[in-house]
């Protein structure tokens, strides 16, 4: 189960644009770790957040519900949430739970960065 331990990093890519890379099990703890990182970036002025889930293969509905709360916090501030490197099952789970209605999904980080950089307040 150690492979599923959440490994997370966060970075301000450019002004207004934050990146979180998360690999591991997105359960209540993993989801909260992502939410905490997102809150720090949002409070630091990032209105656009990209969450890269390369290395994440298993999630649960409690973890995704915490990601939904990040989405709502960003939407309240007129921000934007995006994901990249989703497995087909995670993508389908996000679709079922309504996350992709309000977030953008990109195939990989490079595509996401090039698309989002124009939207961030740079």
């Amino acid at each position: 189960m150690n492979d599923e331990q959440m490994r997370l990093s966060k970075d301000v890519v450019s002004e207004g644009f934050g990146l979180i890379a998360a690999a591991g099990y997105i359960n209540n703890e993993g989801g909260q770790a992502i939410a905490d990182a997102a809150t720090e970036l949002i409070d630091g002025g990032c209105g656009t957040l990209l969450i890269d889930l390369e290395g994440t293969r298993i999630i649960n509905s409690i973890g995704v519900s915490i990601l939904l709360e990040i989405m709502e916090k960003l939407l309240e501030d007129k921000g934007q949430l995006a994901f990249c490197n989703l497995t087909p099952t995670i993508s389908k789970t996000f679709e079922i739970m309504g996350l992709v209605q309000y977030a953008t999904v990109f195939p990989d980080r490079d595509t996401a960065r090039s698309e989002l950089m124009g939207n961030a307040s740079v």
Binding site: L68, M97, G98
Partner: peptide, 24 residues
């Protein structure tokens, strides 16, 4: 039987387990 259309603004975001099982 949850639906994606009721997510945004809904206070409770729990109760998705059976919906996911049925869909997956």
């Amino acid at each position: 039987r949850n639906s994606a259309s009721r997510v945004h603004g809904c206070t409770s975001k729990r109760g998705w387990g059976l919906t996911l099982i049925r869909e997956l």
